[in-house]
């Protein structure tokens, strides 16, 4: 489904503080699988995730999504692909404070201009499926960490993406909430979605739900 060939990513290229976060990654991601990118801090996990999720473009190399080469698409087209194909769950959840859980979930769909009733029903269904129906009108800063993460997951799913990307999803959760997250992950896989995670939490990396663990170090894949 996603194919990476000789991917390099540099920050501050050509400047004295130039830094190569990825140095030649070749990788194939199959549809419907869960893949965890694991490795120490600075190994390039998050950078790789941003390239896979069309949040950034590689400095060198090719990214293919299905049959399409997306490595050098203009930002506008990348945004379109990102909106329709990927759902993101960020490490800090990145919810918009001051808005209700429901409004946060609806946000990614605003640019699509769907009828309001339809969008609201869809968002309510997502929240209800994650046991948050009763908290839909609460402002997100009033929610617990676990609830905030579930709002972030509902938001990631609002545009029915094929791929869900989560960056260190359990880093801010206790064990019980981490297990709850893994349950949700299983459900997403059952629905046929592809899941890409970064994590160094053993609870995630060693989970049976995870199909594949890709290890990175210094911007390169580590052979198993």
């Amino acid at each position: 489904m996603i194919e990476l060939r000789d991917i390099h990513k540099a920050f501050n290229e050509g400047r004295p503080n130039e830094y190569w976060a990825l140095r030649g990654i070749d990788l194939d991601i199959a549809a419907g699988e869960s893949t965890v990118f694991s490795g120490p801090s600075g190994s390039g996990k998050t950078t790789l995730l941003t390239l896979l999720g069309c949040l950034a473009r590689p400095t060198r190399g090719r990214v293919r999504l299905g049959d399409e080469d997306i490595s050098s698409l203009p930002e506008r087209f990348l945004t379109e692909i990102r909106r329709r194909t990927f759902g993101f769950v960020f490490q800090q959840f990145n919810l918009v404070r001051g808005l209700s859980a429901l409004d946060n979930v609806m946000l990614p769909a605003y640019p699509l201009g769907l009828p309001h009733r339809e969008l609201r029903a869809r968002a309510e269904a997502q929240l209800a499926a994650l046991d948050l129906g009763h908290r839909r009108e609460a402002r997100v800063e009033w929610l617990s960490g676990g609830e905030q993460q579930r709002v972030a997951i509902a938001r990631a799913l609002i545009n029915a993406p094929q791929v869900v990307i989560a960056d260190e999803p359990t880093a801010n959760l206790d064990t019980a909430l981490s297990c709850q997250f893994m349950g949700i992950l299983e459900r997403l896989l059952d629905e046929g979605r592809t899941v890409l995670l970064t994590s160094h939490d053993p609870l995630v990396v060693e989970s049976e739900t995870v199909d594949r663990v890709v290890r990175l170090r210094d911007g390169r894949l580590v052979e198993p």
Partner: peptide
């Protein structure tokens, strides 16, 4: 900083620069 952060979030979740 809060506004900048929000703009980043909106772009990451699929809003175009134009939006």
């Amino acid at each position: 900083a809060e506004e900048k952060r929000e703009i980043g979030i909106l772009k990451a979740i699929g809003w175009e620069t134009g939006d």
